[in-house]
């Protein structure tokens, strides 16, 4: 694997995370728990779709085959999508969505803080822009974790259930392989092992205020970064790709 291939793979991982989570959050539009929150969630979806577009644009440029951001977003096979399993999980109830978002936001904020210092100017610039959005997402999800955790007994039990269920997908956020190793040497990629302690301590802090427990079961699921997804992924892609597959090679 050369440097260019590594940057392409690395960028697609980031783009796919944003795309799939943006896809999931956009499913809330029109169905939120209250009008104000409907609007808030859609803003988050919009940010994520915007980030995906920027990262795909860059990936297409790195690839140099004349493809567009849409070719990459819509026309790959399931195995070629490299998002973590966490972001493709179904929305479930509002608590499931918030827990998924919270785990991801904490990671993403730390990640973009570091990536904005990357020696790759393009990645650094997109990370910088995305960081502002992510800080807001994190504020939003943190506040909701606290409200739901320290709200009613019902909400407490529900959000604890969401946390317990989704916990097994969180380790994959820190997945690294030779792609990362190669790029870390060049100061392009972020060393994710360095983020983990901060990720965990932020979560502990918010959970404490929310009267929630960090799950003790350490068994983890992974596969997304290698293109091995959950059963939900195929359905998500079926929707996402519907138009491009049914009507190939057209302008919209």
């Amino acid at each position: 694997m050369n440097k260019q291939e590594a940057i392409l793979e690395y960028t697609l991982r980031i783009a796919d995370d944003s795309l799939l989570l943006g896809h999931r959050i956009s499913e809330w539009c029109g169905h939120g728990p209250i009008l104000e929150e409907d609007i808030a969630l859609t803003n988050i979806a919009l940010d994520l779709i915007g980030q995906a577009t920027n990262f795909f644009d860059y990936a297409a440029k790195v690839q140099g085959e004349g493809k567009t951001c849409d070719d990459l977003a819509f026309l790959r096979l399931e195995r070629e999508y490299k998002n973590v399993l966490l972001v493709e999980q179904k929305n479930g109830h509002f608590g499931d969505t918030i827990a998924r978002q919270f785990f991801f936001d904490v990671f993403r904020k730390l990640f973009f803080e570091s990536l904005s210092k990357s020696t790759d100017q393009d990645l650094a610039a997109i990370a910088e822009k995305s960081l502002k959005e992510t800080r807001y997402h994190l504020k939003h999800s943190s506040e909701w974790i606290i409200r739901l955790g320290d709200g009613t007994q019902e909400s407490h039990d529900k959000i604890q259930g969401s946390v317990d269920y989704l916990w097994k997908f969180t380790d994959e956020l820190f997945f690294m392989d030779q792609v990362d190793e190669l790029l870390i040497k060049e100061n392009i990629a972020v060393d994710l092992t360095a983020l983990k302690a901060n990720w965990k301590s932020y979560i502990s802090e918010i959970f404490q205020e929310a009267t929630l427990n960090i799950p003790t079961n350490g068994w983890q699921q992974a596969g997304g970064r290698k293109g091995l997804h959950s059963e939900h992924m195929g359905y998500a892609l079926a929707e996402l790709q519907y138009m491009q597959r049914a009507y190939p090679n057209m302008q919209w």
Binding site: E36, E37, N43
Partner: peptide, 19 residues
């Protein structure tokens, strides 16, 4: 707008009125 608390009201105002 409707909000549960002041923090929530500011966030909602940001999303509703400053898009």
């Amino acid at each position: 707008l409707r909000a549960a608390d002041a923090e929530n009201a500011i966030n909602n105002a940001r999303d509703v009125y400053t898009r």
